[in-house]
């Protein structure tokens, strides 16, 4: 509970925040704090300056683009995502995932940007954003750059964010009628820590045109499992097809073990959740989807 001494600063703008980052090597950004504060409490990371960006208006917006994509400011909270009509109308799954993160208190503080930048393998959004092929918009003193979500997550607590950079927003492509998205977790308790998780994006036109299948909690970062994607492509996506495709998740795949599951169990469960996520995605396109 008791933190090391740390300096606190609350800048007025993203530019100012970047300036502070550039002049303090040990500075870290503080958004909702629902992971970072725990890390500080347990003194497992050393931070000299906390730069509180949670309330910066520049980071707090949800906007739709003419192409049907949406851009979400990094400091939008899970609860705000869950209550955004825009999100619900165009990107329902983002709202659903947000509404099942832990509990109300965490949803009221935790931000989508923080969920990504902490890159904790238990975090909910990274696999979804990889599956949806989101783009991470990163700002620094030299301007903006874009990184695909798939390239953004680099390791446990590590991302593509370089010193002096801030994740400003996330752009999520449109979800046309021939695309379905699935998201399935096997958790220790309901809405609690995931043992294995999968998100699937499936473009379907009679047969599967294209699929992205992402597995999470099996390695430090979300991974696309391409052999399964290939097995799905061109199939008519019957439950049997999907189960067959999931069965290619094989022994080449060595998930991390911890107190919530062995490597072997996680491998087998990866097949199950990936199958279910694809099934959910397919059912959505075919109009059989549930409430999600």
């Amino acid at each position: 509970m008791l933190l090391k001494s740390v300096e606190y600063v609350r800048p007025d703008s993203v530019a100012q925040a970047i300036e502070i980052l550039n002049s303090n090597e040990g500075a870290a950004l503080l958004a909702g704090g629902q992971s970072l504060v725990n890390i500080l409490k347990h003194r497992v990371a050393s931070v000299d300056v906390l730069v509180d960006i949670a309330t910066l208006e520049e980071l707090r917006f949800v906007e739709s683009r003419p192409d049907g994509s949406i851009e979400i400011g990094a400091c939008i909270t899970y609860d705000e995502l869950d209550h955004s009509e825009l999100i619900h109308s165009s990107h329902e799954m983002i709202a659903w995932v947000a509404s099942h993160i832990e509990d109300q208190q965490i949803r009221n503080r935790g931000t989508i940007g923080g969920n990504c930048c902490l890159s904790d393998p238990t975090n909910n959004f990274p696999p979804l954003l990889v599956a949806m092929d989101a783009t991470m918009n990163i700002q620094s003193s030299s301007g903006m750059r874009q990184v695909r979500a798939e390239e953004f997550f680099k390791g446990y607590l590590m991302t593509a964010i370089q010193p002096g950079e801030i994740l400003k927003s996330i752009t999520v492509p449109p979800v046309p009628a021939d695309v379905g998205i699935g998201y399935v977790s096997l958790s220790v308790g309901e809405d609690s820590k995931a043992i294995v998780r999968s998100s699937a994006w499936v473009k379907l036109n009679g047969v599967v045109q294209e699929a992205r299948v992402v597995l999470a909690r099996v390695s430090p970062i979300p991974v696309r499992y391409q052999p399964m994607e290939e097995a799905l492509r061109g199939s008519s996506a019957t439950p049997e097809d999907i189960a067959r495709a999931a069965s290619v998740i094989g022994s080449d795949f060595e998930p991390v073990a911890d107190s919530h599951g062995s490597s072997e169990y996680r491998r087998e469960m990866a097949r199950v959740v990936a199958k279910r996520a694809v099934l959910e995605a397919v059912e959505k396109v075919r109009g059989e989807g549930g409430s999600k």
């Binding site: 606190y8 503080l30 704090g33 409490k41 509180d52 109300q104 009221n108």
Partner: peptide, 12 residues
Amino acid sequence: KLVKSCMLLAPQ
């Protein structure tokens, strides 16, 4: 907003 006060620093 409902929040957990152990997940915030006082200056926040």
